[in-house]
Nucleic acid binder design. Sequence first.
DNA 1: TCAAAAGTGTTTCCTATACACCCATGA
DNA 2: TCATGGGTGTATAGGAAACACTTTTGA
Lengths: 256, 256
Amino acid sequence: MVLDGRDRVDIPHANAPAVPAADEGGPGQQQPPRFGHEALAVVLQIREGELCVLLWRRALPPYEGFWALPGGALGAGEDLGVSIRRQLAQKVDVRDLAHLEQLETRSDPERDPRRRTLATAYLGLVPADVDPIVPADTGWHPAADLPAMAFDHASVVRSGRRRLRAKLGYTNVGFALAPPEFTMSQLSGYYRSALGHDVAATNLRRVLLRRGQIEETGRSVPSGRSGGRPAALFRFRDRNLQITDEFAVLRPPNAP
Amino acid sequence: MVLDGRDRVDIPHANAPAVPAADEGGPGQQQPPRFGHEALAVVLQIREGELCVLLWRRALPPYEGFWALPGGALGAGEDLGVSIRRQLAQKVDVRDLAHLEQLETRSDPERDPRRRTLATAYLGLVPADVDPIVPADTGWHPAADLPAMAFDHASVVRSGRRRLRAKLGYTNVGFALAPPEFTMSQLSGYYRSALGHDVAATNLRRVLLRRGQIEETGRSVPSGRSGGRPAALFRFRDRNLQITDEFAVLRPPNAP
DNA sequence: TCAAAAGTGTTTCCTATACACCCATGA
DNA sequence: TCATGGGTGTATAGGAAACACTTTTGA
């Protein structure tokens, strides 16, 4: 069916937008508007069996006393990834971030009451075995039970949690939550904390082994005071993000 | 294990970044830098059995004669979603866009040789039954075989294709590729074009019915010249994005 | 020898693909 | 009645969850 164009916006030269574009260079033209831009990070870590997010407490208005995501203004010569790494180095040692990926960009004109600022959020993950030194105004909060948050940061944290939960299902992101070596019951604890529901260690082991995500180190951990069989130590085979379950459905037909 | 902070960046008041932040409001402070920002769209449609992307040909340098994604500068009072819809209204009637979602933000300082410009890309989908009127310098190109592209736009198109392919597997995005009513062989053709591999109509039908994505309209289409049984017409039950296969793996245990 | 924790074997379930076969229509 | 394409029935495969059972340790 081909529409006839009735009721259609039909501008003869459509590449000349109402607001002057950054596209048509030439003398005497109007410059496009410029905006403040900041990088934010949802830094997640599992601490004492709970998924936590790194926040700092604002000392000045607006949102004085509210909690905010770490981050800040994009610098002149840097891209967003470099910027958020630089800024996190001031709160979490960069080397502690096992994974970092872009989440989304927020652009509501009213999101910052002072001046128009766009924010690009990143998701960062810190393995459970490190405890980065953070400034006095900064701390870890349960991601499921956020304090009063500044700006639109509460919803950005929810985006980050959703992204992590989804990716645990079809990638090897687990490597960024777990220490370099771990027992299966530890790992199932991390999964439980991140997913918010029970994960049976026995099944998790088989799923991740089958997918080739983890392997045995050959070593094991002595059993605790209360006895029990010593647990084998595992590691992730690759500590970079890999999609391990690409064709969960709608996979291509078998070659004949 | 708790790290001791050796070799660690440890700045006393970490919330005062090297580049002045947009956060600490106060008199006499330095303003954070501002940047050009544009919204771009990867608008995809299946045309004659091929996944195509809407591009326009640049008439001026830089990249004169190269093909670019539609879009342009973010306006002062609008957010990115409003902006890209406004700009697309000049190329594709907004009502023809059955789905629009944010893809990613590109921020390489060198991505535009003229001036620093960030770009937030969107993925837009046009159902196969409409043929929007587009300006003379604008046209549809096979997404798998792109012409010479300006800026970083070729890689943005690849992002859009990847996103669409992935979402066809666990959401009902198909509604945005298909017309309001369709036969199963038509629909499997759209899936084949978007995924790049064969999709058996008979299985697609059962999968999408089980997931509750599609339903029979009750009507059917008369068979063509060459005979054959008339095909039943289906429709998507919901023309908004729904995740229909959330717990493909690692789903929560059954309630006891 | 018993409790505790880890690990294995096995069953069941569910989903999706493959494929043979049946159905409805036009010429 | 036959070719053509749509639709159904059914077999098969694979992954994952559930659960009983075995193994290995400390006390």
